[in-house]
């Protein structure tokens, strides 16, 4: 049953990825006439036909799409129109580690802070701690992160000189971008954990756990928390979406040399091949991450692992 669950998810993801590639391809065809870019003002209609043939633009759209997909699988995502016209794939691989590090640190921070905050809020329901946690969560969900990044930079770097304003290299460079990036997720995790924890603490199996004579800490952090994490995982997909958006704006604000900033630079320069490549790459990442979440989900909740009934 586990296997059919995974293969079903795989199928769904392949469809999503395929759809995204169609969107990217069609949008690419709309970016203006690539032939006109390559020809000089003195070219003849014969020249134009020749270039079209070379680029495969005289073929039906479906065949063009086929060729596009084949190239994507070969890792040929086109060349940047800027500078030394490096292949887009190369640019992505160069920038990806920095993005992965930042997102990984931010995700870790989100859970390390968000989960305990949600638990504490739920167990102190209606008290000051609960109020404070909910306030943090509310503000975290209401602040535009790119602005928050600029404000943190202004406060800690410009005014207090505690941290580097931007760039990449040392641990200190991680602090501001990671803090900015995790705030929204912390807020979301806190809210989710609190809401499901409040429900679950009234469950009969929590009563039974106490009847067994287990210490309250085990009741909360083992019995209640494991169940409370299930709804959190449900929303992991939207966390990833937020992290991708976050990557673009935060890497831009902090001059972080990742793929998010690559996307922003490409947008500024209208460098379509690079944008297209980054978007496809991020989509694949996003979809892959969602698959990992599904596996985690199955691991936490045995009802999914073995299929219901």
């Amino acid at each position: 049953m586990m296997l059919s669950f995974i293969s079903k998810r795989f199928g769904e993801m392949a469809v999503a990825l395929l759809l995204m590639s169609v969107v990217v391809f069609l949008l690419g065809r709309m970016t203006g006439d690539p032939v006109a870019l390559l020809l000089s003002d003195y070219s003849t209609p014969q020249d134009q036909a020749r270039v079209e043939r070379e680029l495969g633009l005289d073929q039906p759209l479906v065949e063009q799409y086929g060729a596009f997909i084949v190239n994507v699988f070969k890792g040929e995502l086109g060349n940047s129109i800027m500078g030394d016209q490096s292949p887009a794939a190369e640019l992505i691989l160069e920038r990806f580690p920095a993005s992965l590090q930042l997102a990984g640190v931010a995700l870790l921070i989100s859970f390390l802070i968000g989960v305990p905050l949600g638990v504490v809020a739920a167990t102190h329901r209606g008290k000051t701690l609960d109020f404070a946690a909910r306030l943090v969560a509310l503000i975290g969900q209401s602040v535009p992160i790119f602005w928050l990044g600029i404000m943190l930079m202004y406060l800690f770097s410009v005014r207090l000189h505690l941290l580097p304003t931007s760039g990449y290299g040392t641990a200190a460079h991680f602090v501001l971008p990671a803090a900015t990036m995790s705030l929204f997720t912390i807020a979301a995790v806190t809210r989710l954990v609190r809401a499901s924890m409040v429900d679950i603490l009234n469950a009969e199996y929590i009563k039974l756990a106490r009847i067994k004579g287990l210490p309250e800490s085990v009741v909360i952090w083992k019995h209640a928390l494991r169940n409370s994490l299930i709804p959190v995982l449900t929303f992991m997909g939207s966390f990833f979406a937020n992290m991708i958006t976050g990557a673009v704006v935060i890497e831009t604000v902090f001059a972080w040399p990742g793929i998010g900033r690559l996307a922003y630079e490409a947008i500024l320069n209208r460098d379509f091949p690079v944008i297209q490549a980054v978007v496809l790459f991020m989509t694949a990442l996003f979809i892959g991450a969602n698959l990992v979440v599904d596996l985690l989900y199955a691991w936490v909740d045995p009802r999914i692992r073995y299929g219901r009934r």
């Binding site: 769904e12 993801m13 469809v15 999503a16 759809l19 995204m20 969107v23 990217v24 949008l27 709309m30 970016t31 997909g237 990833f240 979406a241 991708i244 958006t245 673009v248 996307a263 490409a266 947008i267 209208r270 379509f272 944008i275 297209q276 978007v279 991020m282 989509t283 996003f286 979809i287 969602n290």
Partner: peptide
């Protein structure tokens, strides 16, 4: 609906913005 929820729409938005 599932498909729309599983795509990172913000990326499509970026493409859109650049193309149009």
């Amino acid at each position: 609906v599932d498909l729309a929820l599983s795509l990172p729409i913000i990326l499509i938005a970026l493409l859109f913005g650049v193309v149009f």
